[in-house]
Design a protein around this nucleic acid. Structure first.
Lengths: 210, 210
DNA sequence: TAATAATTGACCACCCTGGTCGACTGCGTT
DNA sequence: AACGCAGTCGACCAGGGTGGTCAATTATTA
């Protein structure tokens, strides 16, 4: 990215970032079209290559930016004092929703980055390393400081936590599928949080001591 | 599809079907390349359009074929006499694996069919209807004849079943991600079935009466 | 041997791509 | 007013990939 992009008004900056992320996330690096990006972002074709010299440079910038956001707005916010695993997952889900509202394509974009393959122009190793450590440390954090005494006696807590995690991500997946076809009012969202908490209650009933 | 395709030797037929499914599943209808298909299937370009007049006809045929297979080799095999929900899920997972071995791209292909969008050439309504009823009846079958008395007293069985389903599909997802980087020996597969059954034991411990 | 069916891949018109560049605008400085 | 210059645009380019065709060739059948 060139210095000029820094000086652009923030709203236009954000528009470009979000649109570019969306296209990379949906179509992958190769099939994402810069033409469609500029059209959707409402800027001239020339500007994209004025801000970023090449498509590749734009992509690198987005990965970097995405990691920054995830680090600051997601991973740093995990509440390590919450020993109740299910409650911690609840808080993390809320945090995820918060990030999602501000950057709807961030998560899926970062997931697709792993699929990037271009033997002649690989991602900078430094960036790959940063990505890996962020994920690894994030995972560690998820399970750090959990009070396993919540779980039933004789229960394999490791397996239990995995099963719970999968249940929650399954819920989120089916939820987002449903929500694609609806308009999101705050009311509706609260309604779904209640529904979600209902499922968490069943989880506690299942895995925790009575 | 034209009559000629019926008379082709079965192995070549299957090769073409599998390769075409693979490409449609991985790239979607529009971006799937007939050029790559014929190259990978080892046939001349002309043949594909001799068997199927157009790319669209090929696609329709594959959807039809895929639904046939799913109906006969998957949905018809569900053991409705198994009242234990978790055990039924176990059997279904085994059946799924069986189908996967014979048609590795069937499931993902059929999932992507839902994303097909081409306003000028929509899928035949009859086919869409068949797809929908198959899914709906399949879902119904999953939960049909389940003995809810297995579950803990006072537990919301509906929610519990969903949570269990999500856990299992989560397990399968992470498993297939791992398996992508390995060679599949029968030994290894048995090993994973044991591991899987370990998780099912925890599920029973969690949701069922003692 | 003649007729028919199966098979090939070079070829076509079309579309979209990432990237360039000359023209234009608006603002600050001299 | 004249100049310079950063910002902005979109027509344009060569290159590559697309679904589909078809004349030519080989294999099969009668």
């Amino acid at each position: 990215m060139t210095k000029t992009f820094h000086n652009v008004e923030r709203s236009k900056q954000q528009r470009i970032i979000q649109v570019a992320m969306k296209h990379f996330a949906e179509d992958g690096y190769k099939d994402a079209s810069t033409n469609k990006m500029v059209k959707e972002a409402g800027i001239g074709k020339g500007m994209l290559f004025y801000y970023f010299k090449t498509k590749y440079d734009l992509y690198i910038y987005l990965v970097q930016y995405g990691l920054d956001v995830m680090e600051q707005e997601f991973f740093h916010q995990v509440d390590l004092s919450e020993g109740d695993f299910i409650e911690r997952m609840y808080k993390i889900a809320k945090q995820k929703m918060y990030v999602f509202k501000r950057h709807p394509y961030l998560m899926t974009f970062l997931q697709t980055v792993l699929l990037y393959r271009h033997e002649d122009k690989p991602l900078p190793t430094e960036l790959v390393k940063r990505y890996d450590t962020l994920v690894k440390e994030g995972m560690q954090k998820m399970y750090q400081n959990i009070d396993v005494s919540y779980f039933k006696e004789q229960m394999d807590a490791e397996k239990a936590m995995r099963l719970i995690e999968w249940s929650i991500s399954g819920y989120q997946q089916t939820l987002t599928e449903q929500l694609k076809q609806q308009v999101l009012t705050d009311e509706l969202i609260d309604q779904y949080w209640d529904d979600f908490y209902g499922y968490l209650a069943v989880l506690k009933q299942a895995y925790y001591k009575e």
